[in-house]
Amino acid sequence: MPVIDVIAQWGPRPNPIRASSVEAITSILQRFDIEKCILSATEGIRHDFVRGNERLAEAIDGEERLFGYATVNPNYVEASIGELRKYLYKEDFLGVVMHTSTLGIEIDAPEVKDCLNACRRYDKPILLYCYGDGEVRKLVAILEEFESLNFILAHMGGDAWENGMEVASDHFNLFLGPCTFHAARDHIKKAVEKIGDRRLVFGSDLTLINPAFVAGMVRDADLTVQQKERIFYRNAKELFGL
C-alpha cells in the first residue's frame, strides 16, 4: 500500500538519531514504500525559521519524493509573511507549518491570526503543532475564523488527543495526524468513528519517529483496507492536490 507522509522533519535533533540527512531519509522512504514526504526544517522550528526554510529548499531541490513546508514564526509576523511569499509559489512547497507550542505562543494570539490571514491567498494546508487541552480547545475559534483554510493537527494534539478528535468532529477544515505515543490502542478506530475516514492523514514525525512505529498503529487498527488506504495515502493526495 503506497504511503504519503505529511508530517516529517529534516535536520539535526538533540537525540541519538543518525538518519537525518536527505540520503538517509530517502532510504527510509524507499524501505517503507513512502511515495512522497513533506518535511519541515528542524532549524526553522526551534531556531531561525528564515535560515531553516532556505536550507530546506536547497535540500529538497531536485528530490522527487521530498516536499517542504514553509515554517512561520508568529513572533516575527512581517518576516513570516515574507517567507510565505518566497516559498508558497514554489511547486515543491506544499504548505505552512507553525509550532506554537514550541514557540510558547498561544494559538489564538493576534500574531498567529496575522500570519493565518496572510495564508488565505495561497490555498495551502497549515500544519499545526499545538498541544495540551487548553490550546486544543482554543483551536475552535481559529478554525471558525479561518474557515477557508485547511489545518492538520500534528499528533492529534499530543496528550490532548481526545480533545483533538472532539474539535475535529465539529470542524471539517481540521485534519488529524494520528502519530502520537500518548494514545491508547484504539485511538485510530475512535478517530474514524468520530470524524470519518477522510480527515486522517498519515504522518510519522520522521526523523524523530520511525515510520514503522506509526504504520503499525494504522495496520493494527480495526478498519477496512479501503479506510487504511485513505489514511496512508488518498486523503493526503486529495488534501495537497498531489
Binding site: F213, V214, R219
Partner: peptide, 16 residues
C-alpha cells in the same frame, strides 16, 4: 505493552 498499545508499532519497529 499490549493490549494497551498497538502490538504492530513495536513489532514492525524490530522487524524492519
Amino acid at each position: 505493552n499490549a493490549p494497551l498499545r498497538y502490538f504492530a508499532s513495536s513489532y514492525l519497529s524490530v522487524t524492519t
